[in-house]
Design a protein around this nucleic acid. Sequence first.
DNA 1: ACGAGAATTGACCGCTTGGTCAAATCCATC
DNA 2: GATGGATTTGACCAAGCGGTCAATTCTCGT
Lengths: 211, 211
Amino acid sequence: MTLTPPPQRPARSAGRELKEKGLFEAARSVFAEEGFKGATTAEIARRAGVPKANLHYYFPTKEALYRAVTEEILSDWLAAASSFDENDDPKQAISTYVAAKMDLARADPLGSRIWASEILRGAPVIKDFLETTLAEWLASREAIMRRWIAAGKIRSLEPRYFFYMIWATTQHYADFEDQIKALNGGAPLSDEQFQKAKAQAIDTILNGVMP
Amino acid sequence: MTLTPPPQRPARSAGRELKEKGLFEAARSVFAEEGFKGATTAEIARRAGVPKANLHYYFPTKEALYRAVTEEILSDWLAAASSFDENDDPKQAISTYVAAKMDLARADPLGSRIWASEILRGAPVIKDFLETTLAEWLASREAIMRRWIAAGKIRSLEPRYFFYMIWATTQHYADFEDQIKALNGGAPLSDEQFQKAKAQAIDTILNGVMP
DNA sequence: ACGAGAATTGACCGCTTGGTCAAATCCATC
DNA sequence: GATGGATTTGACCAAGCGGTCAATTCTCGT
């Protein structure tokens, strides 16, 4: 399900995609701050610098816009998740995956926050994704981890709670960025600080599971 | 700053505190689901089973109600935080603290979610708490951990990122409960599952930092 | 240069929002 | 049982909401 232009005629000029992209990005920032219900189409339009009626030309309803935003986020999540499979060695697989999730949180904090906000309100839009695609992803990686455990390559543990820890820790840097900022003298983590945090997350998690 | 009755006259009957408590609890559930902006006083009043005008008698504005809810959450957070200091031994202190945070997430998921939602919108109401009380708590516990590191009792690490991992992991079980539910066949974690998750969180975190 | 569809937009609509208010009711005290 | 403040509540209001629409302007193939 990819995002379709509102009327299905061929795009006329490059301005179309540009404007759509502007609205899309404005929507991301407003949804991330206010959640679906708290977000207003007027505010989204204002940030995009277009009249509200113009927004409704590109995205017929607030929910259609929200769904478009959401789909991209799920797609990015899956892309980062694939890094877990790039290596057969647990140490490498886990390191790579945690690093990818940390980088995603850093590169796209808004996406992570929209996800969080969607879960907080009961996940009405992504519930199906969670119950099917995400559940399947988790089940198959649990199987991999159980083989590692059986082979004595990692400690014995319940894989899903391990993944929850990874998700929680990495996404915390996006979702709670404002809290981290407040605890960092008002400034967001510098690149050096973030690299240190990433390295430590990998390190602590690895030490936590390697025998 | 404790919560004051709207007019300051002495309470007449027990019904007053009861009604106030009902509104308070209804407000918690709505704020947790919809965030501050998405929450409506009409919905809060509906869940409390009182007319909206009655809500505004007890809490003059939506923000006053929100602030009252928020204060209690910060207070609970600090209470759980004190468990970190109950023991001089790092292993004991960390175990006890993680257990306390997990128990708090289980006992009061709404509080955790309201906190998360408040951070997501930029923490306008609790920013001062974060920059003062929370920052001081963190600084002094960082000092404790640095002494442990110097004494070789735990691995060398940056204490604050370690606390972020604890906060993230424990609060994940409250904030992302609906996601966990979706990954658990639609059912929330049973008490046994939760105890297992708690034990594993403690275990993995301890292994992650003990030398 | 003109016709036709694409894109733009101010004005507008019905509904919901947070909050107000005055009238009604309750209830401890005398 | 009368008094007066505490409490309750339906009705109401101005502002904001998501969404519509008709009139206008733009853009391209001819």
